[in-house]
Simulated assay, not measured.
Amino acid sequence: MSKLRDGIYGLAIADALGVPFEFKKRGTFTCTGMVGFGTWNQVSGTWSDDTSMTLATCKSIKDKNKIDLEDIRKNFEAWLFEGKFACHGETFDVGITTREALTEGHGIDDFYANGNGSLMRILPLAFTDARDEEIESVSSITHAHEISKKACLDYVHLARKLIAGEKLEELGLNHIKNKPEDEIQSTGFVLHTLEASFWCLLNTNSYKEAVLKAINLGDDTDTTGAVTGGLAGIIYGFDNFPKEWVDELKGKDLIDECIF
Rank of each mutant, 00 (worst) to 15 (best):
E166M: 11
T187E: 09
D239W: 07
T204Y: 14
N178H: 09
E146F: 14
I13N: 04
S48I: 14
V43H: 00
F21I: 10
E166G: 04
A78Q: 10
N116E: 14
T30M: 06
I255A: 11
K24N: 04
K59V: 13
D6M: 08
K149H: 04
L231H: 03
D93Y: 02
G105F: 14
R99I: 10
D50Q: 05
E100M: 13
D154P: 00
M120Y: 13
D110G: 04
C31A: 14
I184N: 02
S52K: 03
A214Y: 03
L17K: 01
T128D: 07
S60M: 14
P242A: 14
L254I: 14
T142K: 11
N116G: 08
A101C: 04
C58H: 00
A113F: 06
F189A: 07
L254A: 10
D68K: 04
V246K: 01
D239R: 06
N240Y: 12
F23E: 06
S60P: 00
A56Q: 08
N205M: 11
T223G: 01
L102A: 07
F198W: 15
V156D: 00
T46H: 07
L123M: 15
S2T: 13
S140K: 09
L162D: 05
E195H: 01
D253R: 07
L194M: 04
T228P: 00
L11A: 13
V19H: 01
A86V: 06
L102G: 01
E90V: 08
T51Q: 03
K243T: 12
L173Y: 14
P180F: 15
K177Q: 09
I135L: 10
W199L: 11
A214I: 09
S206P: 02
E104Q: 09
I176W: 02
D220A: 14
W199D: 04
L119K: 03
F111Y: 09
E134W: 09
T98G: 01
D132E: 15
Y9R: 06
L201I: 06
V246H: 00
I184Q: 03
A12Q: 05
T28G: 02
F23Y: 15
K62I: 14
A144H: 01
S186D: 08
L191M: 09
W245P: 01
D256F: 12
L202K: 00
S137C: 05
E134R: 07
T28L: 13
G89R: 04
L217T: 04
A113N: 05
N114Q: 12
E248S: 12
D132A: 15
L201T: 01
S118Q: 07
L254F: 10
D71N: 06
L201Q: 02
F85C: 05
E170S: 11
Y112K: 10
I255K: 03
E248Q: 12
E146Q: 10
D154Q: 12
G172T: 11
D68Q: 02
V35E: 08
A159V: 12
G237A: 13
D50S: 06
